[in-house]
Computed example of a mutant assay.
Amino acid sequence: MSKQWSRSLRVVVGIASAAVVAGSLSACGNSSDSSGDTVYFGVSGPKSGTSAEYGRLWQQGFDLAIDQVNAAGGINGKKVALKWEDSQSDPKQTVPIATKFVGDNSIIAELGDFSSPASIAASPVYNRGKLVQYGFTNSSTEFTKGGDYQWSPSITQDIFQDRNAQWVQSKAKKVSVVYLETDWGKESFKYFQQFAQQRGIEIAYSSSILPDSQDFRPVLIKGRDANPDAFVHLGYGPDGALVVKQLRDVGYNGQFFGGQNTPQFIQLAGAAAEGDIVNGVFSPSDTSPKVQDFVSKFKAKYNTDPGDFNVYAYDAINVLVKAAKFGGATRDGVLKGLREVKDFSGVGLGDSFAFNQQTRRPDGVKPIELLLKNGAFVPTGSK
């Protein structure tokens, strides 16, 4: 899921053009050195800045997965470890990080970045260096169009917003919508507007909101006064928590769709978000043995329930490890595995999938509808 798809596409394209030049300087990056005892994945992601919470959730999922992989023998006897560079999910920082990773022959694949523009800016470097860029939270439809080395299991915004409109339709005929004033937010709203119209949902009011704003009440009052049956927020956890709390402050008590399935959103939003409905990929209350095994191990290590972004990271490690076991612990081997393995699986990805070789995303992975009930997100079908 893309964060801060916030700078204009012109800036991203400019950075991407510069990245081609940067990538050409990494002549040693076209092959990987698998002669050591450790196999490395590079991580380009936020450990500081406004998106640092997502990096923290990633780290938990990565560490649990790597502990399990190494306990089971690693990749064909080699231990797995990470080389992490803090990008702050900023396109200006991801390009030099990509150049560094491509030039480090011990790295057999890259994970990240968190935001789609941050990833897209660096894609030319990874393509030129023939290093898989596994953008496992990149929901922009544009990310995997970058080249043969861009892969993602993330559900794209067209699919998210189709399902979002479906769930909104079950609760409301008229809605007010706020969305982030970012390229990602605009893309999300474009798709939601399209599918809302197809389903006969009236958008009585819509407005963008600035990602860094702390006071959305002037916009929310206008949305409230449009007398919607529900309020839809297209954004992330921190801004979603502010939106729902301020909606309640201005007297709107109707159905809310928005925020994210993260501990941060639940904590920040508090009681104001009770009854919230979101797109998600995972719930700790899922009774399937695979999910409950993951939840029990996660809670034993971190003493808290996992959320979507823990699952994204955990699944990402396991997918790349399986690809490398199949194709070999090299850059070419990871690519071969992603192309040829037909039975990948994941806690949030289902029991079996293969990557579509044209889109380089899985076919058939769908979001699930989650309801915030008693401070926890549960599938809407749960009692």
Rank of each mutant, 00 (worst) to 15 (best):
F41V: 04
D162W: 09
L234Y: 02
D63K: 10
I368R: 02
Q292A: 07
V80N: 06
N318R: 15
G74R: 10
V43D: 02
V278N: 05
L25S: 15
G55P: 00
F136Y: 15
F216R: 00
D215N: 13
D308C: 06
Y236L: 12
A313P: 04
T141I: 14
T144E: 09
K301C: 10
T380F: 01
P379H: 02
T137D: 00
Y314L: 08
K245P: 11
A98M: 03
I15V: 10
Y54D: 06
D158G: 10
G45L: 09
L25G: 09
F294L: 06
A273I: 03
G185Y: 00
F256A: 10
K299H: 13
S288T: 13
R224M: 00
S206M: 00
L57K: 10
T50W: 12
G346D: 05
A273W: 07
Y191V: 07
L180N: 00
S26D: 01
G348Q: 03
F265C: 11
F62E: 01
F294R: 02
S154F: 04
D215W: 05
S87Q: 07
F344E: 08
D286C: 11
T141L: 13
L320G: 02
V378Q: 11
V341Q: 05
Y252P: 11
K342N: 11
D86K: 08
G275R: 14
E85K: 01
G350P: 08
S382Y: 08
S32C: 06
H233E: 10
A18I: 05
K100Y: 08
P306H: 03
A329R: 02
W5K: 09
V319L: 10
Q161M: 15
Q59I: 13
V177E: 00
S296Y: 00
L64Y: 07
W151F: 14
I120S: 11
F355D: 04
T262L: 08
I155V: 09
V334E: 07
G45W: 06
A271T: 05
